[in-house]
């Protein structure tokens, strides 16, 4: 980003996209959508031993209105899919999705009528994490991959996701 100029000249030049992306990727607030045993590993990721705050992502918020990234950690049943989708819809743009573990990514060992065989059927997933459950390091790796992806994104003149998506009418 030309930071060497900062010391010499007192300012630096960069592209607006790069700067916005840099700010966004280093302050991802996760929505911890913990719905099975993966949630335990997600909690461990937030603990001092693995310390997700090293990546600027420690502010887990239990309201979707304050979140940028939803971590779907666990088995999503058809009945639960509507809830997960509603929480995702309530998050402000820009937003991202991490599908954590085998169940969320593919149904995992629950090859059954009641379990959605992969949340990408109803959510735009950015990063999948393999494992059953994945180690905290794997979740951190997913977060780093997501940060790389965000750094490449264009912010200026970009269409927000929900504008290009159908948003269902609220039901009474």
């Amino acid at each position: 980003m030309g930071l060497e100029n900062l010391q010499r000249d007192g300012f630096f030049t960069s592209r607006l996209d790069e700067t916005i992306a840099w700010a966004r990727k280093n302050s991802l607030w996760p929505m911890p959508m913990g719905i099975s045993c993966c949630a335990i590993e997600m909690m461990a990721t937030a603990s001092p031993r693995f310390d997700i705050s090293r990546f600027g992502s420690e502010v887990m918020r239990f309201t979707p209105r304050q979140c940028d990234v939803i971590i779907v950690a666990g088995t999503v049943t058809y009945k639960m899919s509507k809830v997960v989708r509603k929480i995702y819809d309530q998050m402000p743009d820009p937003k991202w999705v991490i599908s954590m573990g085998a169940c969320a990514s593919s149904g995992g060992m629950f090859r059954s009528y009641s379990v959605v065989q992969g949340i990408d059927q109803f959510l735009p997933v950015d990063v999948f994490v393999a494992g059953c459950p994945p180690r905290p390091e794997a979740l951190l790796h997913a977060l780093i991959e997501l940060q790389k992806k965000i750094q490449r994104e264009k912010s200026t003149g970009m269409t927000m996701r929900s504008e290009s998506l159908h948003i269902p009418e609220p039901t009474a």
């Binding site: 059954s112 009528y113 959605v116 990408d120 059927q121 109803f122 159908h166």
Partner: peptide, 21 residues
């Protein structure tokens, strides 16, 4: 009724609608 023996293990397609992507 899923536990009936003539109900397929993977369910009946489109019997459980998902939210739109």
């Amino acid at each position: 009724h899923p536990l009936r023996k003539d109900f397929p293990l993977m369910g009946i397609p489109d019997s459980l609608p998902l939210p739109r992507r």
